[in-house]
Design a protein around this nucleic acid. Structure first.
Lengths: 159, 159
DNA sequence: CTATATGCAAAACGTTTGCATCCCT
DNA sequence: AGGGATGCAAACGTTTTGCATATAG
């Protein structure tokens, strides 16, 4: 089953359980938000609005924001602050976890997984007397030459 | 020499070098920003404004923001995004580095150092073809009972 | 039929900027 | 004297909210 379908099913279950309604807007936003090609660009709220609005011209920002909040409550998305001044949301896909590296030259965002770090984070939390619930990690760095970021706009690279 | 004095010296050197001026506002803001008791609460820009404004009622937000930007340019501070919607700034004190753990029960912010994680971060960056410039790491967790966070307001703890 | 969701526009929020005035150097 | 710095208020971009209307259950 695709991640989109999986997400729609989880959303429906959450709505049912809480007496909330399954509307065409919520389904559309969820469909686009979980679309593989779309989500890999780490879209901003504005990006999401543009894409949703293109498919249904009546949908405004308020619904986008309200639905994103809903997805967070439903455990389907998490807010992440990778860049300044703009909240980006990321789909929570069961069994998947990654952190980010932001290229200081071109702004490209890469994902990575490193289990060793996760283990040490657990250890730190335990040492401080906490049960770890979540974490955010972002690395910032300059690329070797040539830049290996998949989304690197070469013209923009400054060294 | 205290961190405040150290910071004021570094600021003066930076100002001199760039033909900028040492004003009473810049010195006051720097003094408070680096004050040990003050900075340990991870103050927001508003917190800083309130404290500065109390000592010099003519200082407005614009000067706070402009001076914080200046401190960043001078390498004396870094913006950090620990909480939603509000940029917090942290003093850069030579030889000190730590990451943060945010208590999900009371909001207290703890600091920690874990060299093993730093080593692995370097390794990840190298693997992806980047030279690591900086990083942000925030852990979120619920406290054991009793909560060991120094700034934990016990009344607010929910379990 | 009723409660929830939507769309719009206005408000709110943190942050930045234009401009006249001030004050270091 | 002159260029940079300040204070104020207005502008800005993002996010939230009030309210009348529409729609799912």
């Amino acid at each position: 089953m695709s991640e989109v379908d999986e997400a729609l099913k989880r959303l429906t279950r959450f709505l049912d359980k809480h007496g909330l309604k399954s509307t065409s807007q919520r389904r559309l936003i969820t469909r686009i938000f979980f679309d593989e090609r779309f989500r890999q660009d780490h879209p901003s709220v504005e990006d999401l609005y543009v894409r949703v609005h293109a498919e249904d011209g009546r949908v405004g920002y308020a619904t986008i924001y309200r639905t994103l909040k809903l997805l967070v409550d439903a455990g389907l998305a998490s807010p992440s602050r990778l860049t300044d001044n703009q909240t980006r949301y990321e789909p929570d896909i069961p069994g998947e976890h990654h952190d980010h590296l932001v290229c200081t030259a071109c702004g490209a965002i890469l994902e990575f997984e490193e289990d060793g770090i996760e283990v040490l984070q657990e250890a730190v939390a335990q040492r401080l007397g906490f049960r770890l619930a979540d974490h955010r990690m972002v690395l910032y760095g300059a690329p070797d030459d040539p830049c290996r970021a998949p989304a690197c706009p070469r013209e923009a690279v400054v060294r």
